[in-house]
Every structure is written in C-alpha cells, then in structure tokens.
C-alpha cells in the first residue's frame, strides 16, 4: 500500500561529518519523486535515511523526523528491520544474491517474513516477476542462478525482489546508471507502471530520465565541497524543468554546473 512520506528537519552524519542538513519535504503516494543534484550533495545519503539504511554505515547517524503516513520511522520504539521490510530499496549496481536461484532471489524477502506454502510462493514470485517485466525472459529458468542474467535483467530481478514483499515505498538509487540504454528504457517503463501501486523515490544523475519518469523533482545542492548538502527546491517536474523558482536549479538543469 502506497504511503506518503513526510520529512522534517532531517540531517545525516558520517561520524562528525554532516552530509545533509535540515531537509524537509513531502513525498506523495502513488507518484514518482526524482532526486537530482551534483554528485556528493547527499542524494544517496538522504535516500538511505528513508529506510534506515544510513545507520548501518559505521558512524552513520540521523537527526530529524521521517513520517510514513502517521508513523515516525525514527521513533524510539521502531525497529529498523521492520522499517526496511516496508520501505524497499533498489541499488545502483544490481545485487541479486549470487548464491540463490532466480526464484529464491524473489522469494527471499517473503521467506524472511515467515513461512509460506510452495503454491503461495509460486504465485508471488510469478506476480513479482511479471510486475518487473521479467517473467517471460526467465520463466523457463527459475532455478538458475540470478547472477547469470544480464545487467538489466539482474536489475529487474532486484526490483522483483523488492516488490515481492509489497512494500509501501520503493527507493531507487540511480538504478540505471550501470545499464545500457535499452535496459534503461525497460526500467523506466517499469517505473511508470509501478507508480500505480507504490510510492517511488528515484535518485538519478540523468536529467532526461528525471524529466521522463518523475512527477515531482527535488533539487539538492551543496554550497562548497565538505559542506552539507541541502534541499534547494522541490516542485512539479514540469515546473522544475521549465520554470524553476531558484536560479541554482536552472543553472544546474541547463548544464551550467554539476
């Protein structure tokens, strides 16, 4: 079930280094929100605060609030493991479990959540692979290792794995940056379909991609190297790309820096 994310006053640290500072924004459900900005401005860091993955990095620490509908992910009693089960993530480099078959990769999240009957698993695996537009390519070799697929297929396998557990939110950190243009298009199409069911946040360094897939775009920037990244503005993607309200956004989009 897609949920709204409400972030307020969020800062994240690596040890004593503040990577992002005082970010507040709302991510609408059943839509795609793109994060753009020059490299090092904290897009990945920010994304990883949304499923509490930031704190698994040594020294990682977060201040502020992330509300998923009406639950604060950083409330004291919230278990980060449970958060990650409802906020799925797809990484920059496809990372299927190399020792698992395609089937087991997709079923991995379900198996973490409890025991399922074989028929239930079969159904979920098929539905997820179909959802990731991968079913037709792999249905005859579900028992083969996932690492034998092409890069683009592996990334769609990772998407299938993430959506198999029916998360509320799907986070994607430059999911196409390691892929060829055809695979990239396949993933972009897929994102368009997935937003009917999920809240999607995608980091991308590719401006055309942001323009193509997202409904809203957030621009991040940092005032100087070593300074924390900040949210400059977030708006309808069309506005950001045609008539942004901040000069820095326009400079970045028109390729004047970054």
């Amino acid at each position: 079930m897609a949920k709204r994310i409400d972030i307020s006053g969020l800062s994240a640290f690596y040890g004593s280094h503040k990577a992002i500072e005082d970010i507040s924004m709302t991510v609408e459900p059943r839509s795609v929100t793109a994060f753009i900005g020059p490299s090092g401005c904290g897009k990945s860091t920010f994304l990883r605060t949304l499923n509490r993955m930031h704190e698994v990095t040594p020294g990682g620490r977060v201040e502020g609030k992330v509300m998923l509908d009406d639950e604060n992910l950083y409330a004291r009693e919230v278990d980060p493991v449970a958060v990650r089960r409802t906020v799925g993530m797809v990484f920059q480099r496809p990372n299927p479990f190399p020792t698992m078959s395609i089937f087991d990769n997709v079923a991995a999240g379900l198996r973490l959540n409890g025991s399922y009957k074989k028929t239930e698993l079969n159904a979920v695996v098929e539905r997820s692979l179909r959802g990731a537009n991968l079913w037709n390519e792999v249905k005859d070799r579900l028992n083969k290792p996932g690492s034998g697929l092409s890069g683009g297929q592996q990334q769609r396998l990772c998407i299938a794995r993430a959506i198999a557990v029916e998360p509320d939110v799907l986070l994607m950190d430059e999911p196409c940056s390691a892929l060829d243009p055809i695979s990239t298009l396949a993933i972009e199409d897929l994102i368009g379909e997935l937003k009917e069911r999920f809240t999607i946040v995608i980091v991308t360094h590719n401006m055309q991609q942001a323009a193509r897939v997202s409904d809203r775009t957030a621009f991040f920037n940092l005032s100087a190297v070593g300074q924390p990244g900040r949210l400059i503005e977030i708006d309808e993607t069309e506005r950001i790309f045609s008539n942004p309200s901040v000069q820095a956004t326009e400079d970045y989009i028109s390729g004047r820096f970054g």
Partner: peptide, 14 residues
C-alpha cells in the same frame, strides 16, 4: 561485498 550484505539488509534481514 558490501552490496551483497546490503541486499539482505534492505529486505529487512536481521
């Protein structure tokens, strides 16, 4: 590899 472990972590693995 870090990314192998993060794959499991992001699925909500203990």
């Amino acid at each position: 590899p870090r990314m192998n472990e993060e794959a499991a972590l992001a699925l909500g693995a203990t």
